[in-house]
C-alpha cells in the first residue's frame, strides 16, 4: 500500500514539474511588470544618488540586460537549483530562504495542527449536537473568529497575554543572546510560538469548523448512515466509524489548498509578532523589488503546494477507500 502511494506521490510530483515551470515563467514576467526596480529602491532609500551610482547598481544586478537574457540566465540557473543571488541582502537566495523556512514551517505546522484538530473536533460536535446551545455557541464563536481581522486578534493577544498578564513575550522567535541549541532553546522558541500560532490558527479553525459541521450534517443525512442506523449500530460507532471519516474529506481538501493561503496570510501574523518567516520576506522582497528573491519564494511555495496536494490525495484514499488514485493515467 505505502509503496503504491509513494509511487503515486512521485508521479504527482513529476507531473507537478511542468506546472512549477509555468509558474516560474509567468511570475518572472508578471512581477517584472511592477513599476520601479531594485536600483531605484536602493537609491531612494539612500535619500540621494548619482546617475553613476544608479548605473553601477543596475549593472551589478544585471538589470541593464535585456529581459529575455535575464530570463534565459534565470532559467539556466534554476535547472541546477540555483535560485540566484540577492544583491540587496548580499547573500545567496537559497540561503536566505532556508534561514526563514524553519520559522515558517514551525509556525504554519503548529497552526495547521491546531486549526485542523480543533476545527474537526468542534465541527463534529456542532453537527452531532445540532440545534443545541453548545452547537450555537460553537458556530457563533466560529463566525466571530472568522470575521475578526487577523492583526486585531494578534494585537489583542499581545495586549492581554504579553503586556497585561506578562505570560509571553510580545514578539520575536527567541530571546536574543540566549543559547541557540538544546532543550532550553526549544522551550524558549515554544514560549515565543504560542501567541502567533494561536492567532494564525483562529481564522482557519473557524473555517474548518464550519466546513466540518456542514459536511458532517450532510453525511449524517446520507443513505449509508441511515442504513447503518437501521442495522442498529450504536450512535458513537456511526459517528466515528462512518460519518467522521467521510465528513473529513472537504476539510482535508480545504486544508490542502489553504497551504499557500496560510503562507500568504502569515504575512500579517509574522508582521505583528515580528516572526522572521517567509511571508514577511516575500513581502519585503516585493517592496524592495528584490524580484529574484520573490521568485525564489514563489518557486518554493509552488513545490510545497504540489507536494501537499499529492499527500492530500493519498490521505483521501485512507479515509475513503471508494476514491481510487489514478496517478499515471493522465500523464
Amino acid at each position: 500500500m505505502w509503496f503504491a502511494n509513494a509511487k503515486y506521490v512521485l508521479g504527482r510530483v513529476l507531473h507537478g514539474i511542468p506546472i512549477i515551470l509555468a509558474i516560474v515563467v509567468v511570475n518572472f514576467f508578471l512581477i517584472r511588470l511592477a513599476p520601479g526596480d531594485a536600483a531605484q529602491v536602493l537609491a531612494g532609500e539612500s535619500g540621494a544618488a548619482t546617475a553613476e551610482y544608479m548605473r553601477q547598481i543596475r549593472e551589478q544586478f544585471g538589470l541593464d540586460q535585456p529581459l529575455w537574457l535575464q530570463f534565459v540566465n534565470y532559467m539556466k540557473n534554476l535547472l541546477v537549483f540555483d535560485l540566484g543571488f540577492s544583491f540587496r541582502h548580499n547573500r545567496e537566495i537559497s540561503e536566505l530562504i532556508m534561514d526563514r523556512l524553519g520559522a515558517t514551517a514551525l509556525l504554519m505546522g503548529t497552526s495547521m495542527v491546531l486549526s485542523i484538530g480543533f476545527g474537526i473536533l468542534l465541527g463534529a460536535i456542532a453537527a452531532v449536537r445540532d440545534r443545541t446551545l453548545l452547537s450555537h455557541v460553537i458556530m457563533i464563536l466560529a463566525i466571530v473568529t472568522y470575521a475578526t481581522p487577523l492583526f486585531w486578534v494578534g494585537l489583542m493577544l499581545i495586549i492581554v497575554f504579553a503586556l497585561n498578564l506578562g505570560w509571553f513575550p510580545t514578539s520575536g522567535i527567541a530571546t536574543i543572546g540566549a543559547p541557540v541549541d538544546g532543550f532550553e532553546y526549544a522551550i524558549d522558541v515554544a514560549h515565543h510560538l504560542v501567541l502567533p500560532a494561536i492567532a494564525l490558527s483562529f481564522f482557519y479553525m473557524a473555517l474548518y469548523t464550519r466546513l466540518m459541521r456542514a459536511s458532517m450534517l450532510e453525511t449524517l443525512g446520507q443513505d449509508f448512515i441511515k442504513t447503518a442506523r437501521a442495522k442498529g449500530l450504536s450512535s458513537s460507532n456511526i459517528v466515528f466509524r462512518h460519518a467522521l471519516r467521510n465528513a473529513i474529506i472537504p476539510v482535508l481538501t480545504m486544508a490542502g489548498v489553504q497551504v499557500s493561503a496560510m503562507l500568504g496570510g502569515s504575512v500579517i501574523i509574522e508582521s505583528v509578532f515580528g516572526w522572521p518567516g517567509l511571508g514577511l520576506l516575500a513581502y519585503e522582497a516585493l517592496f524592495s523589488r528584490d524580484l529574484n528573491l520573490l521568485l525564489g519564494i514563489f518557486f518554493l511555495s509552488s513545490i510545497l503546494v504540489v507536494l501537499t496536494n499529492a499527500i492530500v490525495d493519498v490521505i483521501y484514499t485512507l479515509v475513503d477507500p471508494r476514491i481510487r488514485l489514478n496517478g499515471g493515467r493522465h500523464a
Partner: peptide, 22 residues
C-alpha cells in the same frame, strides 16, 4: 556591553515591546 538592533515589522508591536521593557 552591547547594543542590539531589533527589527519588528509592525509599529503597534514595537510600541508593545517598548511598553513591556523588551
Amino acid at each position: 556591553d552591547s547594543i542590539v538592533f531589533r527589527f519588528i515589522a509592525d509599529s503597534a508591536t514595537r510600541a508593545a515591546g517598548l511598553e513591556s521593557g523588551e
